[in-house]
């Protein structure tokens, strides 16, 4: 280390000397090369200033004492600055590490979502989900039982970030480990609630709507656990009706029970499920009203379910100046024939 310092000092001395004598471009070029050398040798900024002070004193012996004192003063400042700078650097490194861990969590979370949307000639399904931040608190799930029913869940986990991602994997595995035979929506929520209640911290909860679509009878049976109400859209009257459900959020009370509702669909009718990020979307002019949302959906009614949700998202994104405040999930089911 000492050796390197001495050789660096010699090197700097000759470069500075050259510059003082000639003021040439070449000396400046050498100075640039020298800067790179400093990085390689892990020289701190205050060490460099010190080097300069020492070398300058050797090269210019008759420096006024004010300049010498001023140099010492600069050195003091640089020592403090160096400490603060390194602390900042290490915080930044730490932050980058946390960010990359969070990115891994987000990627794992993507893996929890269904890989594909169930396809059926009689039911068109569109889904759009966008996280406001790196990790989302919204979740959706499909269960295809091969028996003319498609189970559909949309859930919202309170909070964001890592706790949300952890709760989401709990929800997924709890649904996956439910008994093989198809459960009624109310029984499914009661089962999930027991799992969540035992495994969640005291001020967390999950809201969910779960429905089962009967592909033969074209009825949608559903139950809600404190979730933002969806809509039923009647194609022939062009009217929207709230899918109101009464039911407590998951994770609060062990013995919660959930009421079950049923909605029949005619060809062209829609079921719309959403997370509160859709209606809680806030712009400077205020919150979007549910009636404004249904207006937008009606406008795109002639498109496919996927195209509708994409278009609704881009309109609401514009409404919020492209700054999503909350996670956004919108699902549309349409009876085709």
């Amino acid at each position: 280390m000492e050796k390197t310092d001495v050789s660096l000092q010699e090197m700097y001395k000759s470069i500075l000397e050259g510059y003082l004598h000639t003021g040439s471009e070449h000396a400046l070029y050498e100075a640039q090369q020298f800067s790179r050398q400093l990085i390689k040798e892990n020289m701190t900024p205050e060490e460099m200033v010190n080097l300069h002070v020492v070398v300058a004193r050797e090269l210019i012996p008759d420096l006024p004492s004010e300049v010498l004192e001023a140099n010492d003063f600069l050195l003091e400042v640089m020592v403090g600055y160096g400490l603060a700078y390194r602390e900042h650097q290490s915080l930044r490194d730490r932050q980058q590490q946390l960010e990359s861990e969070l990115a891994v969590a987000a990627q794992m979370q993507q893996e929890l979502l269904p890989k594909r949307i169930p396809k059926s000639p009689v039911l068109d399904i569109g889904i759009k989900t966008v996280a406001a931040d790196v990790v989302s608190g919204d979740y959706y799930h499909f269960i295809e039982d091969g028996n003319d029913h498609i189970g559909i869940a949309v859930a919202d986990i309170i909070g964001k970030g890592v706790p949300a991602a952890l709760s989401m994997s709990m929800i997924k595995y709890a649904i996956d480990s439910l008994p093989e035979q198809r459960l009624q929506p109310s029984a499914l929520l009661e089962n999930l609630n027991r799992v969540v209640e035992q495994n969640i911290s005291s001020n967390m909860f999950i809201t969910m709507i779960y429905g089962s679509y009967d592909l033969k009878e074209h009825k949608f049976q559903y139950s809600g656990a404190g979730h933002e109400p969806g809509f039923y859209y009647n194609h022939s009257s062009r009217q929207f009706v709230d899918l109101n459900t009464k039911g407590l959020v998951l994770g609060v009370m062990k013995k919660a029970v959930f009421k079950e509702y049923e909605q029949k669909l005619s060809p062209g009718d829609l079921i719309i499920l959403l997370s509160d990020g859709v209606t809680e979307c806030r712009a400077e002019s205020g919150f979007i009203e549910r009636s404004e949302l249904t207006e937008i959906i009606r406008k795109y009614e002639h498109l496919s379910a996927q195209e509708i949700v994409e278009n609704v998202y881009s309109e609401l994104e514009q409404f919020q100046n492209f700054q999503l405040q909350d996670d956004f999930t919108l699902m549309i089911l349409r009876r085709e024939v």
Partner: peptide, 15 residues
């Protein structure tokens, strides 16, 4: 009030 806020009241109720 947002959902985190509601969570505080759930925690308080349990308490």
């Amino acid at each position: 009030i947002d959902s985190t806020g509601l969570g505080i009241f759930i925690g308080a109720l349990k308490s």
